[in-house]
Design a protein around this nucleic acid. Sequence first.
DNA 1: CTGTTAGCGCATTCAA
DNA 2: TTGAATGCGCTAACAG
Lengths: 332, 332
Amino acid sequence: MNRRTTITDVARAAGVSVATVSKAINGRYGVSPDTLSHVMTVVEDLGYESSLVATSMRRRSTNVIGVLVAEFEPFALQLLRGVSAALEGTDYDVLAYAGSVSAGEHLGWERRSLSRLGGTLIDGAILVTPTTTRAETSVPIVAVDPHVGADGPATIGVANLEGARAATDHLISLGHRRIAHLRGRTDLESAQERERGYREALTAAGIPFDPALVVDGGYRAADSTAGAHAILDLPDTPTAVFAANDLSAIEMMRIATERGLRVPADLSVVGFDDILDAASHAPQLTTVRQPLPEMGTAAVRMLLDVLKGSDPEPVRMPTTLIVRESTAAPRQ
Amino acid sequence: MNRRTTITDVARAAGVSVATVSKAINGRYGVSPDTLSHVMTVVEDLGYESSLVATSMRRRSTNVIGVLVAEFEPFALQLLRGVSAALEGTDYDVLAYAGSVSAGEHLGWERRSLSRLGGTLIDGAILVTPTTTRAETSVPIVAVDPHVGADGPATIGVANLEGARAATDHLISLGHRRIAHLRGRTDLESAQERERGYREALTAAGIPFDPALVVDGGYRAADSTAGAHAILDLPDTPTAVFAANDLSAIEMMRIATERGLRVPADLSVVGFDDILDAASHAPQLTTVRQPLPEMGTAAVRMLLDVLKGSDPEPVRMPTTLIVRESTAAPRQ
DNA sequence: CTGTTAGCGCATTCAA
DNA sequence: TTGAATGCGCTAACAG
């Protein structure tokens, strides 16, 4: 648990000044070849590496890209995979940060995290499903699946409405008529769009919309438990559920199974996202795929563009219905 | 792209000194209730949040836990999930860092990353599959699946040998006799242990060990391609392959399929890790599960213990063989 | 109770 | 070519 070796240690060991070491490391002019090689040797010996913290206080850029998330859930992790892959080979490091939103916190996690890291530590940030995209930030940002709508200049969104329609159409085409919707967080645009897609599909099929069939899930497993029960407690139990995301779909299946129902024999379930858990669940979840790694890659590309000064167009990625095992025709 | 609001901005807006703002924010004594509430109002208005960087330079602790990885691959991501879950509800933030190992870098990524973040930015670090566990660090560390052996004081390891034996035993029990091993990185202890488990299983079953059947894979998909081909090019082609991890197992399946073989009809494949991709692959991969999220949780618990001053015992997690679809009896 | 001062580790002037 | 001084945003010790 020793102290880090600082630039001062290197300077002392090399018998030169701190400034010389700094210049040598950063390849600035004004260091004699002899001194340079000597300093570099000492640097190697001591295993010195400049402190990100100190560097970032003085320098403009740190070559670190921040990925800011509310928490490390599967959606963000899949995205991170794409981000990491896209940055492979560049000289950027990736710093993923999950800021805890301690109770009583007024600003959203994204503002808090940006405020803490921005300006200095990171050159730019990728915000994953932020609830706000206010532009008054200190570093360039790209928002992925922002919950207020993917219409900002630097945003990566997905076709929520179309995806939700496809999911619901799929259930209808299997013969389901009584289809519940385990809704996402109602304050988020993605949830609203998915609900709209659900309703549009019903309308298009001539199925009257029943408000009782829409139950709040909130996108998180723990928040979906009550909703899942509520759906199964409905009089004239629905034969199918379109859940607003995979986590709540999986929770829906868990509760259904717990209550003795079989999926898909007694209840069909469709999710949204296609996180890896969807395919590894038993039964495998039918869902609407968002191309998460590709979205991460696109976000990186967009951020690097912004960093270069350009002003990119918003990107809207397509969704694909992935039919697996959790959906089937209703029993007669 | 404005400047961040700094503590100076707040001080100026509130008409007090910087020190007073600092004290108010950090709840130190010596601020009158009036001043306090006034300052806090300004803080709210301006949306001020202290810079992690600056704070960490002056303070002992930042309440940030670092998770240091070489890259964000599935193994690390699953682990991160456990880490994140374990830190939920505490007032710790999680900072996951992937340091790019630019070519010509001599120190390992873990030393580089620790050097960059350590000392100030993070209170402690969880190193994911580090190749070294040298103790000369500036912050407490816990190593997960360290590649030099899980015998350090603060390490979380898995039963590599037993897992590898189970995997190989499974193939043998299916009737395979000619079983290849797509080995991991030979400089890493985990790879050596897995190879040992493979050999022990063969020996126990009375199958002579054939060195030609062991081919290097290197744990990464890209590094396994050549090895996968090599195995299939072997005279008297093996009927089964035990790959040192899931990524190389999946690559093995990909190459086999590409060459017209069917898995498991023509070739059985077993992996190691049970990353989520294993179960979502078609055919689903038979593999040896490491309880990754639990390992992440255990790492957090251990790190918090270390932070509290205790000196924990190393933990060795059990592995479980998960039989799925990629293994079957050999054809006659 | 409040403001002033020093310094964390580093990169950047500017002077020697 | 080198080195001493300066300041980044912040907190802790001290002075007022």
